[in-house]
Structures are given as C-alpha cells and as structure tokens.
Write a protein that binds this DNA or RNA. Structure first.
Lengths: 331, 331
DNA sequence: CTCAGGACTGCAACCAGTTGCATGAAACAC
DNA sequence: GTGTTTCATGCAACTGGTTGCAGTCCTGAG
C-alpha cells in the first residue's frame, strides 16, 4: 500500500539500487537521473522507510530519552530542547517516563535499545552497576549523574548551592536547613556536599532534613520539621519542594520571607509564577538537553569521527535572587 | 554483534522459524521445545528486533505523540499518562514538539508516519484540510479538536466555562472579560462560545480580549487592556495566562481577588502553587491521554476488532474554586 | 589504436525477522 | 493395515531498503 523504493524504480525506469542511492549517496548517481528519480518520488509521495533502512545500516536514527518524571517541571524544558536538537540532526526521539522506578527504568532501556542508536539518561535512579552492564548494549549519555568512563553532562549545582549559602549568610542568617531529594539523586548529593562545605566555612549551622519526595508534597511534609528546627533559611532540593515548604510554613503561620528565607533549585515555571517569587538556583536545562544530544550523536558516530570517547561536560548554574529570601529579621 | 534469532536457533538446534514462533505464536510450538528455546534465548540475552518485525508485519508497535509545546504545563501530565498507557500495551511512543508551528507539525507527521502505527495529535494547530489529507497515511486520534469522521477525545471545557461564568455571576460580578488563546485553538473557541452564551443568559457584560499568546507573557501583555476595561472578573484561556495576568495587574496596583477575580483553565501545577491559589477549570488531561491511546490502538486494530471506526469522547471538566475569585467588592 | 581509469548503473546478497506451505511423525478412526 | 487428522517443525519467499562487486560506456593518455 505504501509507496516503496521499487514503485519509484519502476515508475522512473531505473533499478532500485539507483533509487536507493539517490537518497543515501546522491553523489554516486548522475545528476540528470537523480533529478528525474526525485521528481518521480515526489510525485508518488515516496518516503523512505527508516525501519527498513535501519535493518541494513544498523542506524535507526532514533534516540531514547529516559526521565524519572515527565510531570516534574524540571524535565519538560530539557525534553523540548533535546527533541528539537535531535530533529535538527534528523533524529526522532522516544520519550519514556520511569515513575522514579529503577526496575522500570532498566526494563525500558532493554526494550528500547534495539530501536535506538543511543539513550539519554536523565537523572537516572539506576545503580551504577546496572548502568555499567547496560552500556554494552547501547551508547549512553547521562545527565546529572557522575559515572566514570561514560559521557556525562552535569549541571554544576554544587557551585550554585555554594553561592546560595553565601547569599543566605550575607543576609545574616546563622542557622539554615537543607531539604534533600531522593536517595539515588546525584544532584541532591552535590547540593548537600556543597552546602555542608560552604556552611562550615562561613560558620553557619546546617540542619539536613531528608530524603524528601521531589514534589510539593515533599516540601509540605517537611514543613513541620523545618518549623521545629528553628532555622531562618532553607535550601530545597528543587522548586517544587520549596513551594510546598512555603505553603506548609504558611499554614503554620510562618511567613516567607519574613520569618524564613527559602531557596529552590531549577528555576522552573511554578517558581517564576509563585508569590513570593522564588529565589532559586538556575539550571541550564535546555543547554544540557542540546549538549547531551550532540554528545550522544558524537558517541554514536564513534571515535573514528574524532569525538572524544568519553567526556564530562560541566555546565554552570547560577543564583537567581527574587523575593523568597530576605535579610534575617533582627528579633 | 547483537544476538539474533539465528544465533538462538543455532544454539538450541532448531530452525529460525521455530524460534520466531516461540515468541510470536507460542501455541504453535511444542511446550518442551518452547521452554528450551526460551532458556537459550534468555541465556544469550536475546531481544527481538522490533524494526525487523515491523518490516514483515507492518506493525511497528510505536506511536507518535505530537504536541504544540512540551514546556506548556498542560501537556506533561497528558504525555505522561499516554506514554504509561502505551507501555502497558507494549507500545513505545515518539514525542515531538511543534513549537506551535503548523508547517513543522505537518513535516513531523509525514516523517514519523512510516515509523509508527498511529499518531496522537494534541491540540493541533494544523488546518482541518491538511489533517484530512494526512489521515490517509496513518491512523489518527485527535485530542481537543473537533473533526468529523475522525476519532477525537474532547475535554468539555465549554461546560466548565459555563459553570465558571455562573460562579462569577453568583459572586455578584456584572462585567467580565475573556482572554482568548491562539487563533487555531478549538479549546479557545469552545470557551468563547460558552462564555458568550452563558453571560448573555445571566445578564453579564462580556469583553473579549485576544488572541493572546498561551503563556504567562500573553497574560502579562493583556493586563493593560484588562485594567482599562473596568471589568471585575476575568476568565483566561489557561492557567499560565491567568498567572501572567495576575502578575500584570499587581504591577498596576490591581489586587486579585480583591479588585478583580481571575479564573484559569487546566488546573496545572503553577496554578496550584501560586498565591493566591488559582480558581480554575479542571481538565482531565491524564484520562484524556489514556483514553486517546486506547482509542488509537482500537483504530489501529481495525474495525474488524469490533472497534467503532470513529468516536467522539467528551470528558467532563469542572470548576475548582480556590482563592483567586471573590464576591465583588461593594465599592 | 589500445589500454587505463572513471562515472554510472544493474545484479544479487544481505539485514532480522514472519509466515504460507510442505513434510514427517504420531494419533486416531475405521 | 490403511487413510485421515493433528501437531510440530523445516523450507523458502518476502518485507524495504543498502551495498560490494561487476559490467558498460566514455574519455583521455600513450
């Protein structure tokens, strides 16, 4: 039913291989023949079948993009950028959501890998050991997870967290809390490390509360502990947790930023539109998405193409000061 | 390099066709042989190649999901649900973002259609004529667009909009504005129709402002016009527009809900986390995603499978009253 | 005039599966 | 004991492209 290369061949009076070459190796066919074949193909509405092509070439021109939770506002900008960049390079992308479940993540990778040339793992919850085993099956690029021997794109959230601590200390706060994220999260570990180091240097007392669910519910649930801890500033795993926390504090009569300053991470849409506008650590999600796709394609092309086989790209983060942080009240 | 059906056949001493059948038609092979083949396959780490299978069966077991803008918080829950439902049915899904560009949308459908068994079009910006032409190439299910002869899933936003108008009227408002969305949007048209009808019935004066960009910028940009119009209530195309509007009004010293009541559409994350919490029309996005996938699969299976060839499913919406609407001030 | 080389194009095998048909053996009925 | 099913499996063609090899024709050098 669909028009194939053979239909085009018949209609233009050449062999199928010539038609094939007009599309995949145009320089090998006579200019005149080429234009004729192209005209016929156009007329018939021929579109090459990528699956069939993949069978011989071993290149599907598809990528897999695996994220923990599509609904988490951190991911959509990354997905959008990755997908746009891929299309630019003539690749399509499968998007899969693991629901924060490592087993599902693994299963997904295994079923997907036959259909894709490479997989982008964003903030994986999988253990390093499993990733190590899976990388034999398909090229990987990992976002926000450190893995030696693998190409990774990291958002240097530790740097931003350090700046955030400085900001808070500069406002006179002496006791702060950190709401951590899920146990397997590299980002959470980085934030924690940086916060621990920087608070120690600056003589700020740090209370670590967590792990917390990476959503507004996590923040809401932690409000009690935060209120009880007596801190005047809180750094949260992400914007959602921060917004949930602010909500929870408000319910307890604690004002943000009047009584407690709150900082999020991601610079996501809800934080931009909330009230008070959230002071947050900006994450270069779109850049990371684009970069990850390009690195993945380079990895696929192979070391022959001059691509360094393994790279670690660190992208800068920053602190965006808005309304949820304030000089400590002199009470 | 990858282990194929022939490797399994060789290792288990049967013909490739027997191996093929153990996977795609197990009842045709002897139980004993089957278990042996399965054991060998497991041992070798064999995974069927879906692309190769697709070549003969014509079924790729892939779906395409096309949305206008992944970063718009309306879509992620829908994508998440659709993708989860598809996986449940052993389908993978390509997600593509059209950047609200009809041409890109068309191009995307055309390149994707050879690789998928069906396409889910969410809030398409494409003209009906083009969709009509493309449907010959690949089965469609359309979300939030009315198209005769095509299976569609509609969120009955008109109903919700009617209830919203009643709510506002019940609070004593006599002059309200409607901020419409993009020109091609079916949803926007539905809201407008319902708002026009219901305000007329209830003796409320309606000012229509638009089209507006479907983001917070659209709302921000419309704030001037709203402030100048003298209305005391505004129904917005979506939550983002509503939040942008609230922000813009605040900049002009207009309080929400004190001076003006604002209602959004979508019940998206930012609206839940904003301040005041947004009164909004709830959209059954997750249900729509799941339903659309099931209808698409039914369409693919063909009328032979007992599926009605064309269906229109209308899902109910509702009004979620939170903090951004208030009884009109008696000034 | 001959021969080498290059530019095009056709031929046919191949990719990893699926499937209609044929074959063979066992089970069953008569 | 023969004929008929039934079950399990093998054979080979087929899906839609790609690609190494070979053949043809043409051009230019010697």
């Amino acid at each position: 039913m669909a028009v194939t290369i053979r239909d085009v061949a018949r209609a233009s009076g050449v062999h199928v291989s010539t038609v094939s070459r007009t599309f995949s190796a145009p320089h090998l066919v006579n200019a005149e023949t080429r234009t004729r074949v192209l005209a016929v193909a156009e007329g018939l509405g021929y579109r090459p079948n990528r699956a069939a092509r993949a069978l011989t070439t071993g290149r599907t021109h598809n990528l897999g993009l695996i994220v923990a939770d599509i609904a988490n506002p951190f991911f959509p900008p990354l997905i959008k950028a990755a997908q746009a960049q891929a299309r630019e390079r003539d690749y399509h992308v499968f998007v899969a959501d693991t629901d924060e479940d490592p087993l599902l993540e693994q299963e997904l990778i295994e079923t997907l890998c036959k259909q894709v040339d490479g997989v982008l793992l964003c903030s994986p919850r999988l253990s390093n050991r499993v990733i190590e085993r899976l990388r034999a099956q398909v090229p990987f690029v990992v976002v926000n997870r450190r893995l030696k021997g693998l190409t990774t794109v990291l958002m240097d959230v530790g740097q931003g967290a350090g700046v955030a601590v400085e900001h808070v200390a500069g406002l006179g706060h002496r006791r702060m809390a950190l709401l951590t994220g899920p146990a397997g999260s590299w980002t959470s570990g980085e934030i924690r490390q940086a916060a621990t180091d920087r608070t120690a240097e600056l003589g700020v007392e740090l209370t670590v509360i967590g792990p917390n669910e990476p959503t507004e519910h996590g923040g809401l649930a932690a409000a009690q502990a935060v209120a009880a801890s007596g801190v005047t500033a809180v750094l949260c795993y992400n914007d959602l947790v921060a917004l949930g926390l602010i909500e929870g504090l408000r319910e307890r009569g604690v004002d943000v930023p009047g009584d407690v300053s709150v900082i999020g991470v991601d610079d996501s849409l809800p934080g931009r539109l909330s009230r008070p506008k959230l002071t947050t650590i900006t994450m270069p999600t779109a850049a990371a998405g684009r970069m990850a796709v390009d690195l993945l394609l380079a990895t696929i092309a192979g070391p022959a193409a001059g691509a360094p086989p393994r790279t670690t790209v660190r992208l800068e983060t920053g602190l965006l000061i808005r309304e949820s942080t304030q000089r400590v009240s002199s009470s």
